[in-house]
Design a protein around this nucleic acid. Structure first.
Lengths: 223, 223
DNA sequence: GATTAATTTAAACAAACGTTTAGTTTTGCA
DNA sequence: TGCAAAACTAAACGTTTGTTTAAATTAATC
C-alpha cells in the first residue's frame, strides 16, 4: 500500500550529497562546512539535506556508515591467497596504502573525528569498523612468530600503530609531507612514485623489525 | 608619551584566554568552540578576545605563535651532550614523547590544523616552526651512517615520518589507542607505564631499522 | 586625591547558521 | 490521461555566531 515510487534515470541527489560531504568535510572539517556551501557544491537544494538525512549531523553519520570501506573482507582474502606470514604482512601494507591514498579525504575526516572529543557515537561507529582489521593483522604477526621467522618479543599492538601512524602522518597531512621531502606540489603524495617509495620504506622497516636476526643470517649468508 | 599603564597583581586575562583556547580548540576543534563558550570557560568577558587579540582567529594565531614549543634548542643540546649517534636518536625519541604527551591538546590542534585546507598562514607558521627540528634529526642519522653503525640505504625522511607518525597516532587519538590496547580509561595514554612501553617499542623498532646487520652480529656474538 | 589610561562589563549588532515550511514539479503506475 | 507519491524548490524561520559599542571599573602616576 505505501510503496515508494522511485524515479528512474535521475542524478542521484542523495549520493551526490554523500560524495560532496566526504570531500568537503575531509578538506575543511565538519563544523567549517555550512549546509549552504555543501548544497551548492553538490548542486542540490539545501532542503535536500533534511529531506534525505534529517539533518547535517545525520548526513555525517550516514556518510560514515555507508562509505566506510569494507576492508576486513579483503584482509581475509589475503589470509587464503598469500603464502607465508611476511607475504601477508606485505599484502596488508599494499592494501591499506591503496585504500587510504585512494580516498584520502574520507580517511582524513575519519581520523580527525577520532582526535576530537565531539560526537562519541561517531567515534564508536568508526572504531567498531576498524577493530576487526586489527585482529586479522595480529594473527599474521603471530603466524610469523610461530613459524620461527619473526621475533618473539614484538609489541604487536604498537607495531600496528607504527604502520598506520606512518601512513596517516604522510597522507593526512600532505603539506607536512611535501615540506619534509622538499617537494613542491601536494599532488605528489598521490603519485605512483611516492606510493612506491612509501611501500618500500614500510616494508624495509617492518622486515628489520619483525624478522629474527637468525633469519637474516640464513637468507643473506654471503653479504 | 604613550606609556601603557600596567596593572599589577591581576589574574592575567590574556594568558587565561590562551590557555583555555589551547585546551578547548584541541579537544573540539577551532570552529566547534564558540567565543561565548571559550570566554565562559576562561572566566573572562567575551569582549576580551577582541580587546587582546582582535578576533577569534587572532587568538588562534597568537596561541600557535606563543605556545609553540621551542624544541630545536633542546635538540641542539642533545648534539652537545650525548655520545654516539644512537644515543642522540634515543634522546630525541625521549624528548618528543615527553613534549607531546605533556601538552597533548596543543599538539592535537597543531596537527589537526595541518590536515585541514583552511588557514594556510597557520599551516605555514607551524611548518616553519617544525622543519628546523627535522634537519637536526637528519644529521644524527647521517652521523650514524658515517660511523658505519647505521645502514646506508635508509629512507631518512620517511623514517622521521614513522617516528612522528607512531607517536601522533597513539597520542592524538586516545580512543583509538585504548581500543587497540584493550584498555578502559583514556588517561592510560598519559601514564608512565604507557610512556615506557612506547619508548621501548620505538627504540626497538628504530634499532632494528637503523643498525646494520654487521653491527648486531658484533654486539651479540653469542646469542 | 585627582587624573588619565588600561581594563572590564553588559548589551546590542548584523551576518550566518541549521532547519522548516508551503508550494511546485516530476515521476511511476492505473 | 489522471492521480498520488516522491522529489525538489525558494523563501522564511528562530538561533547562534563573531564582533562592536558605549559606559563602568580598576590601576598607575602626578
Amino acid at each position: 500500500m505505501f510503496v515508494k515510487k522511485k524515479k528512474i534515470e535521475t542524478v542521484d541527489t542523495r549520493e551526490q550529497l554523500l560524495k560532496t560531504a566526504s570531500k568537503l568535510f575531509g578538506e575543511k572539517g565538519f563544523e567549517a562546512v555550512s549546509t549552504r556551501e555543501l548544497a551548492k557544491a553538490a548542486d542540490v537544494n539545501i532542503a535536500m539535506i533534511a529531506y534525505y538525512f534529517g539533518s547535517k549531523e545525520g548526513l555525517f553519520k550516514a556518510m560514515i556508515e555507508e562509505r566506510f570501506p569494507k576492508t576486513v573482507t579483503h584482509l581475509r582474502n589475503i589470509q587464503k591467497n598469500e603464502g607465508n606470514a611476511w607475504d601477508k604482512i606485505s599484502a596488508v601494507i599494499d592494501l591499506y596504502l591503496e585504500k587510504i591514498i585512494g580516498d584520502s579525504s574520507f580517511h582524513k575526516l575519519v581520523f580527525r573525528e577520532l582526535s576530537l572529543e565531539q560526537r562519541p557515537e561517531h567515534r564508536e561507529l568508526i572504531l567498531s569498523g576498524i577493530e576487526k582489521n586489527w585482529e586479522v593483522i595480529k594473527t599474521y604477526i603471530r603466524e610469523g612468530q610461530e613459524s620461527g621467522d619473526f621475533k618473539e618479543n614484538i609489541d604487536i599492538e604498537l607495531t600496528i600503530a607504527s604502520v598506520f601512524g606512518t601512513i596517516f602522518q604522510l597522507i593526512n597531512m600532505p603539506c607536512w609531507t611535501i615540506r619534509l621531502l622538499g617537494e613542491k606540489d601536494e599532488k605528489f603524495v598521490k603519485s605512483e612514485a611516492f606510493k612506491t617509495r612509501l611501500k618500500k620504506h614500510l616494508k624495509d622497516m617492518m622486515k628489520a623489525h619483525l624478522f629474527t636476526e637468525q633469519y637474516f643470517e640464513k637468507m643473506t649468508p654471503s653479504v
